[in-house]
Design a protein around this nucleic acid. Structure first.
Lengths: 206, 206
DNA sequence: ATAAAACATTGCAGAAACTGCAAGTTCGCT
DNA sequence: AGCGAACTTGCAGTTTCTGCAATGTTTTAT
């Protein structure tokens, strides 16, 4: 059985864990979207999923973590994708490519992400924790970039490019969530990257 | 009385408040730098300054706020400075000028800022709250930038430039704190801005 | 100088976030 | 079936943070 796939084996237990985690995250988002962050307790969230509050904290270190999702998982995939891009490709392009991981993720769970961005918009303190603001994952990307460009550690370039890229992604996602028509996130990200590659020229006239 | 200066009147009360606030911030930083964030309680911080824990929360909304300093005050000055730059100056240059406010602030309280950056480096969760990560102040800057460039709200440019600028400042400050020789922060910021204005060209050879 | 208003500090009571520990259950594997 | 590992849960306890009411201290007006 389970003779297919490169993954070891999902297993009933893992599936249950994933479901519980997802259910907690979704319940948290829905409740907070309705009532506001301060008006929702961990107890209510766990209640909605029918687990004990203690279990909630087995899944998330704090209440906010249930809202922002799992950046670490995404980050790892971004790093992997980045490392897979051939070295002759310029860094900015490579980073843009790596972000396809994130874009696909958002596309796959569109509604969840809409909710999330709505909650984040109403609670700005969460924004930085969403993506590429927390240093945990940034550090990993900085290393890959540094290796790619081939500069030593005290050169500011890798950190700068990484931070700027993160900023681009953040603004693209914020904008994406704000527009009612929900344009393609990839287009917004492309636009931002183009502007950056051009040195952020002031938009004349248009 | 108090016929000098543009400010209304400092007043003994205000001075005392400022001193208490500064003392709490400094005590918090020193203690956390020594023992680590989790090993320091609000009670200990207040104890060190000889005020009640309740008073601590009259000054800071949460423990972390005592560590990251008052971004709002700085932000207002940045916005004011930005608005004061003549409109014909390109946005990036204007933003760079406005950041002199921050740079001066850091220079004025060098040691405190070193401590702060050390603490932040060890507690990455604090980084975003330090500067230009929280949306409160970013929003204000975005508005000024938008007015400067003359584009409507759904144009991504103002938000992008603001976020990228914030990223540049953040990396410059992180780098500044990491270097043992403590080079001039202004130089690091200049370097970052130059790289951005040039479209983040990959550093060849050097 | 003195009274009144304004504001700061504090203690207390309490809600909620979070953690470690010691069960109890479920699951995966043989 | 049965053993061990992993997940869940309750409980007790610490810490963060808030509202309220009492008590000062500074400022302002008289």
């Amino acid at each position: 059985m389970t003779s297919a796939g490169t993954q070891p084996a999902p297993g009933r237990r893992d599936r249950k864990k994933r479901r519980t985690r997802a259910a907690l995250a979704e319940a948290a988002l829905r409740l907070v979207a309705e009532r506001g962050l301060a008006q929702v307790t961990v107890e209510e969230i766990s209640e909605a999923v029918d687990v004990s509050p203690r279990t909630f904290f087995n899944y998330f270190a704090c209440k906010d973590d249930a809202l922002v999702g799992d950046q670490v998982e995404d980050a790892k995939r971004v790093v992997a994708r980045l490392a897979a891009v051939p070295p002759e490709v310029p860094v900015l392009t490579a980073l843009r490519t790596a972000l396809d991981e994130v874009i696909d993720e958002v596309r796959a769970e569109r509604e969840l992400w809409c909710l999330r961005m709505e909650v984040v918009a109403r609670n700005p303190a969460l924004l930085p924790r969403l993506l590429a603001g927390n240093t945990e994952m940034e550090r990993a990307i900085v290393e890959v970039v540094a290796a790619r460009v081939g500069v030593d550690a005290d050169h500011g370039y890798p950190a700068l490019v990484t931070a700027v890229t993160g900023a681009a992604l953040r603004t693209a996602m914020t904008r994406w969530a704000a527009q009612p028509e929900r344009p393609d996130l990839a287009d917004l990200v492309d636009e931002a990257f183009a502007a950056i590659a051009a040195g952020l020229p002031q938009p004349q006239g248009s």
